[in-house]
Design a binder for these strands. Sequence first.
DNA 1: TGCAGCAATGTTAGCGCTGTCATTTCACTT
DNA 2: AAGTGAAATGACAGCGCTAACATTGCTGCA
Lengths: 345, 345
Amino acid sequence: MAQSESRQGRKSARNGNSSVTLEDVARLAGVSTITVSRALNYPDKVAAKTLAKVNRAISQTGYVPNLLAGGLASRRTRLIAAIIPSITNLVYAETIQYFSSRLNDAGYQVLLGESGYPEQSEQKLISAILSRRPDGILLTGVNHSADCRRLLLAAKIPLVETWDLTPTPLDVIVGFSHERIGMAVADFVAAKGYRRVGTVSASDRRAQFREKTLIDRLATHGITDITRGEVPAPTDLHRGRIGLVRLLDDGFSAGVVCCSSDTLAHGVLIEAQSRAIRVPEEIAIVGFGDQSFAADTFPALSTVRIDRPRMGKLAADVLLARIEDDTVDEQVIDVGFEIVERGTT
Amino acid sequence: MAQSESRQGRKSARNGNSSVTLEDVARLAGVSTITVSRALNYPDKVAAKTLAKVNRAISQTGYVPNLLAGGLASRRTRLIAAIIPSITNLVYAETIQYFSSRLNDAGYQVLLGESGYPEQSEQKLISAILSRRPDGILLTGVNHSADCRRLLLAAKIPLVETWDLTPTPLDVIVGFSHERIGMAVADFVAAKGYRRVGTVSASDRRAQFREKTLIDRLATHGITDITRGEVPAPTDLHRGRIGLVRLLDDGFSAGVVCCSSDTLAHGVLIEAQSRAIRVPEEIAIVGFGDQSFAADTFPALSTVRIDRPRMGKLAADVLLARIEDDTVDEQVIDVGFEIVERGTT
DNA sequence: TGCAGCAATGTTAGCGCTGTCATTTCACTT
DNA sequence: AAGTGAAATGACAGCGCTAACATTGCTGCA
């Protein structure tokens, strides 16, 4: 038990602010620094007695590991970056919440980056993120500029794309098909017997794509009376309301309005109510996303459900598998979708 | 111009994955590593010609700096942590968005931590965050456990608390007074002549505190007919609807419902509409937060405006001032609030 | 008794960068 | 031509940790 008090204050120098280091803990516990390191990272490689001594020393000193140093030495930062269009868009925030919680449980932290603000280019964002040497990255969408693709691939770390599907992902992808959703919504409204269709879509690549496939598919059902409405990208109630105003101004009436998000759909619903237009009798509404509020509007919103919790968790699992085993069963995972019919249709 | 091609492949060893380092850039540019470092961090300390050479070498090699190494050496990580209750609560997400964008402009990145999930204790969260050695931390609220206070203060880095006010902040604080809001809302509904008051408050420390001061203040106006309703913490439309159902079940009618968030208020509004209760004639509603949707409900929501953009930006500015100059004019900054009267009262 | 074999612990050498101080360069005086 | 000071650049050590290999101690078996 009695350990020699060898190796003392060897260095020092620049260390003005006296933060506690592994060496301090090691000295107090009477072991070498590597043993403390092992006690923290691989506790079962250390004898129980030693572990106890080390843990005592850690709590006595109030030691907080330095992951910069650890990451530099081990090339593992336990940091995962996630790039989403906007943190204030609940559908992304929710996905990330599930993604993060899974990764936190596995000992990782998530660094968030917002790509929706083109003032700072996506490339700069990615550079900034890569300079922290994350162990993996989550991306939203599949449309990356050539420069971004190059940067990401050069980093040689696991990547997971989400919110879309492609047969040729950068690495792995967990998402759903916007094309199939557009078609499914078209089939749904056609089957319900609507003959006039209005759209309120955000000026967002994926939203526009769903709208396009919706319209194309409607044509195959013989529905060509389409009134299109586009609103700027961050969707909110206001833009939904404006969306309906525009449709009405353009002569739309007595049909179904297909929206690119539940928020827009809710705005359309409110605008209809403010004009005493009966929903769904006069105007029906379909949203997208099945956000938590969709079941609680009045009438409740018919929409397309995306299983965001599952997408977030799966993205985390796939990334962890790639990081820890470097293996992965499937490169492309389709989480699918489901049309949820409620009161607005 | 012709530089000697001295210092060649000195080391190597563990560097299996051949990522580009400062040394590679330096060699290509024909300068020393420290010059490249300066070219990146203090470009005006480097001659224009040298800068050009270095920049050429950087883009030729595709060099991405390693902030782990840089942070370790310089003790500045350019990382700021922000702890918020939940990323899916828009009021916090929005504050953080402004906070982040300010900090991004200043060359910092924000690492988000969610404290709302008590499975992992706040203390663990803080430890995890501190192990990345952030240059500063944003905290939401002023109620930290003794252990957390100790950890935070021991880190000796700038801290900014938000969303509340106290004369004794850990470091600096940018927020508003929940007590004064409770009182102001009481004064407002009393002045509007309401004699019966219902509450729908989230089971959240600050919401409960506003409710308490509201009720106390109402008493001074002679209003004691209060029906209280509490709902679990993450607020959504559903809980707002349930809140009104409970109030009605408890006999509440013909009065004003004061809610602890705009989302709850919106839920109350929807539930009222679903029951054909006229708003504001039969039931009036007051929200809290003035979220972007508050002006777009029908009728539009009367609420308490908190200037979240300003709070976020100010928190960033104050933190930057503390980090870069270590000075700060005021320790306590009150961003105030404002009652916004719209259609639901 | 001696030694194989494994568990536990230690030594060494960096990881990639920047602070500090030292040196060189060069325009400008006198 | 020599001297001066500021600007530009460089050498070196070390930030705090861990990978890789080395050493020690100990069990068990021939």
